[in-house]
Design a protein around this nucleic acid. Sequence first.
DNA 1: ATGAAAGCGCTAACAG
DNA 2: CTGTTAGCGCTTTCAT
Lengths: 328, 328
Amino acid sequence: MRQGKITSIDVARLLGVSQSTVSRAFNPNASISDKKRKLVIDGAQKLGYTPNAMARGLTSKRSGLVAIVSDNEVNPIYDEIIRKLSYTIQAQGGQPVLCMADNNNMNTAVNKAIEYQVDGLIIATSKISKGLLEKCLSHGIQLTFINQYLEDTEASSFCTDNRLTGKQIADYLVETGHQRTAYLAGNRGSMVNEQRWEGFRDRLLQHGAPPSLYIPGTFSFQSGVDAAATITQHYTDIEAVFCANDIIAIGLLEGMQKISKPQRPAVIGVDDIPMAAWPSFQLTSYRQPLDKLIEEAIAQLLNRIEMGSKADLQYHYYSGELIVRDTA
Amino acid sequence: MRQGKITSIDVARLLGVSQSTVSRAFNPNASISDKKRKLVIDGAQKLGYTPNAMARGLTSKRSGLVAIVSDNEVNPIYDEIIRKLSYTIQAQGGQPVLCMADNNNMNTAVNKAIEYQVDGLIIATSKISKGLLEKCLSHGIQLTFINQYLEDTEASSFCTDNRLTGKQIADYLVETGHQRTAYLAGNRGSMVNEQRWEGFRDRLLQHGAPPSLYIPGTFSFQSGVDAAATITQHYTDIEAVFCANDIIAIGLLEGMQKISKPQRPAVIGVDDIPMAAWPSFQLTSYRQPLDKLIEEAIAQLLNRIEMGSKADLQYHYYSGELIVRDTA
DNA sequence: ATGAAAGCGCTAACAG
DNA sequence: CTGTTAGCGCTTTCAT
């Protein structure tokens, strides 16, 4: 049954100390003797006292909440990012809050987060407007992008180096003797898509390879399947296809099932989702260093929150590694 | 730049009304004239005022926060559940908070949620102890399980009817002429696993079919792969395999690639994850009515929170449907 | 190092 | 319907 909530006053009364002393006992860098702190912590334990984070937030101007902003697109790598973000925020002492929205309700979702006085926003979607971000900033909320960035926004950005990714894949394909290549694109305009393409295209030119073919598409399985038809019908001379991510790549592989393996072009994806390693696909894929990237992104964000320091308006780049399997 | 926060007092002063009037304007069921409400809302808009949810929570004894408790296991269906939960909580006016933990830090994670005065816990993991749940209850937190339940806990449970699932699959297999069957199990002791097995086993007996073979395993891809070896080596007479979920089923299919299709047993999974529909698998799978289940679970939870009513200590069962593809 | 006192921004009686 | 008055449970000066 709902017990009449136990407050710091109850603990104080029990121990014959002031309420402030109880408060201090729970605050790591408050000046209080070790002896008193132990006394209070023990007493609190006995009463089943838990500090009230809302009250703390109200006075301290720091909620400890960090919002994870994501969209509703289905992609295993997004889920992995959310998982890791959440886990890391918790591990580093923050409390993750979720803003899962599409274009329509992103405003509502983020405004709600503002109401809850979140200290920081960690943005893992491109579906958020500059205006909304400005509003967050005006409320003193710290901003960090993951694999994203909106220019001239007071934020930090932690990204896989997508241009480098494209370059490394170009290098690999050239080294392994491929000349005529295609890039199977994700959504036009998304930073990830453009940069992977640019790195890939430019490096191939540097190598003196023929210009790569840009095949428009979206970040979806179906887009890969569709491209399979396009390629087999119109571009039979393509020797290798770099796909903007693994979901597209697997769609492509699935679409090319009728073609005998030796006839198929080489295929490379990005993200190294679990399915890439499944026997049916054995997809060669570029793996992002997600653990490191996310750990450092969160550490920096929480540090900025604590210090009240400004974001650096910079990209923090991370390079991954190519996991070579059967498809290339 | 961080603007000195605008409070309801600022709005009140601007408009020459009382602070309570401002408060009421933002509270849907407060008695205030439409005229005043509009006045206030407009004024607030002009100043860029946003109500402070922490302060509201402190006085109203209702935070509006709902914690989603999940574990760290990788399974697309879990991600889908988290997504849908989050989306639905937001849509129905709550703010989702995340407790993503494994056995080790579940306590920390949930205690943190308690500090934040979450109104409800929505539990989508079996890795939570009775003791911890009791603590939540003692803090007046409402509990709802998804596809789970701990007996004698003051909570509600919204589940796919797993016994029925097993039965329906038994029916289907018998109807389609299969006699010798196996059940490829998930983690022993998990409610989902046991119930699917019980329903399947019992119904087969009712049909007069030979007893089904229980093959132990876990809810993992590898478990399916391993079982493929077991089956092909020791149980070549098995005509159909019911897998505790799709991940296992796909692992099984992958493990059986060497066997020609006509030689393979029929395979059925549960969850209908996106990969089940991929051309390489075309896995027949039982789809849970997740949208409905989650929508009603959240509606009921938020209603209990609002009404302060008790949980019903009941299972709310939902039946799904078999999506027939190539494997059975 | 500790206590007393003053709020944080809001909701909830209580009057009128 | 609206204004006035108390707090909610904590952190933070300010004294001591």
